[in-house]
Design a binder for these strands. Sequence first.
DNA 1: AACATTTCCGGGAATGTTCCCGGTAGTTTC
DNA 2: GAAACTACCGGGAACATTCCCGGAAATGTT
Lengths: 382, 382
Amino acid sequence: MIRCPKCQQVDAVTKAGIVRGKQRYFCKTCAAHFTLADTAPPAARSRHQVTIVDIARELGISKSTVSRALRGQSDIHPGTREAVMELAQQLDYQPNLLAYGLVKSQSNMVGMIVPEFRHYFFPEVIIGAQEVLQAAGYNLMICQSNESYQTEVANVKALMSSRVDGLLVSITSQTNNVEHFRALEKKGIPLVFFNRICPELDTHRVVVDDYAGAFRAVQHLIDQGYRRIAHIAGPPSLLVSRLRQQAYLDALEQAGIPFDPELLISYDLTDEKARIYARYLLDLPQPPEAIFAVNDPTAIQVILAAKARGICIPDELAVVGFSDDPISAIIEPGLTTVAQPVYEMGRTAARLFLETVGTQTAPTTRVLQTELIVRGSSSRKI
Amino acid sequence: MIRCPKCQQVDAVTKAGIVRGKQRYFCKTCAAHFTLADTAPPAARSRHQVTIVDIARELGISKSTVSRALRGQSDIHPGTREAVMELAQQLDYQPNLLAYGLVKSQSNMVGMIVPEFRHYFFPEVIIGAQEVLQAAGYNLMICQSNESYQTEVANVKALMSSRVDGLLVSITSQTNNVEHFRALEKKGIPLVFFNRICPELDTHRVVVDDYAGAFRAVQHLIDQGYRRIAHIAGPPSLLVSRLRQQAYLDALEQAGIPFDPELLISYDLTDEKARIYARYLLDLPQPPEAIFAVNDPTAIQVILAAKARGICIPDELAVVGFSDDPISAIIEPGLTTVAQPVYEMGRTAARLFLETVGTQTAPTTRVLQTELIVRGSSSRKI
DNA sequence: AACATTTCCGGGAATGTTCCCGGTAGTTTC
DNA sequence: GAAACTACCGGGAACATTCCCGGAAATGTT
């Protein structure tokens, strides 16, 4: 009773097993296998965004013409263009960037990987980058690596899968293998590091003059008469940490102040650890007279810890941070800090990408300037 | 001397104009046009990511098989699967999400539109959303509307073009036309509003108990003995503003405190305006004894302005905010505030999307709880 | 040995664009 | 009035996947 779809015969058909849950038949005359088509219709393609062919069909023209009209290119009659434009508007046509990206091998998306964005710094960078990217027609995909090397690698892979046109990255403090970035370079995908760069990779970079800024900060403490100066540094894996720490050491040496290893701590930049080390320093038998912190969040924890102990800032303890987090101006006393143009860093990184994309430019490094902002936390004589 | 590519004839060929910068010819015997092919080879497809066909070619199998192997689906020999997996690893194959999205009509991307992310609130929401989305295999595309209706519409369009699978949105204070969101609904794209919702749209929502929280805050001020209480509200276009403002009015009324219109200000949530209105209130002939601000950034501007004038908080002026921005705990005196689970709001919004996608669920509203945190800025008797 | 079933694989359509290139009709040019 | 040119348009490949479905060989079953 089963009829062969080819020869329309009935008697030469035998069963031939089950494939994917459906009975399969074999027609001996045709020597062909077949399964019975589902009787139910294919459920009328549900949600289907308006496409270029919809417009073409409606207008009775070809999709090529519609494509040309939409892109406002040449070889198109003003009349037809207008008709297309109007219908597109009317149908609320949105070009499918997936299809576009597929044929053009470009996605108009830029990936960004940051270690965190709880504090002021990274969100502000993102704002800067977003603004110039958005203006240039790019969208931003943001990932948090959470200071985890594993997550960073996963993020890179995910962004690669999305075929981002470029990457803006600040590495984690655990990144000591950079193969995942090398792979990007090999594939010719623009890569811009900012703030936390990869010294072993010869790519675009946006940094500030960390050494100079930090040096000025410590110098300022020395000028104010502080001698016993501690430094809470970031993890040595990060170049920024090393630079700021080296500046600290050099500034001390230049001033002829002997370096006391007890007063140098590096830590992982988590808030809890900041609190712990701040207390530790304050509770030292010979506590420091001043503390230079690797960044503002750290410095703020120091101020909080000091205040909790009733230590008077800046008379008994001076504090200096790095970045000029808005909190620094609000906390009391105001936190002296090395201001860096964070927003501008984001813009610069994005611009660097924009310049690179398409035209393979040589890796360039942009160094932005810092500025010491003196507030109450370090000015004994005010 | 021009040879027709079809009939190989030479003499029947005439010139036939120039198309796209190239000379065109016409062969009278074939009655066909043609142009001369570029002599230069097509420049060897430059950067070309590894694809499924590369793997197939290398292994001498079909792309279908590779696809099956990669997806770890059925109908695949363990041996071949392993071979495919290994080669994929070796070639650093990354599936092309663009192509995937094209055939599956889903992009694995979620769009998020926030009015700003300079302050604590929105970045924190993003963190929450990001975490659950990333875990579920989605990427986040973040847009800033900058409180501009135009930008918001543009953002929606851009995200639609990228064929995001869903949208997480906090509207701008200028959004009074919601057609762009209606269009989304019509297309069946999951839409979740958080914090700043659209009352006229029947979609998923995540909010906090704004009214209750605000009421408790004002009640607290009244309990502390303050009578002349001002409110700096947000723009009336936002439901959150209206709710908090209404709670303010109701709390006063319930306490039998007559409402003084002079003490109610709504503004656009920009920092400058916050400063201006804070000063304005403080400089009133009859200044308020307490100020309830629509959010923490506003409240902080009030505290700053008061401190600049030497007004003692909380003795001469009490201040209460909303959100529990980290600065609130740091500023002196500590800012009393209505804490809302910001991070949780992000997670909830993302989860709501996750639940919706695929299975069309009815619009649901999740209301998260707030909690009044009393700090120095309002506790006269401490 | 003949038939039935299972296992694994390949071909080809479909997704929504862009791009290349030839076709047609009308317009100049000599 | 033919030859050359211009202005527009359509067909079809390509992009990297997934999905459907039939084919071939191996394995089971009478």
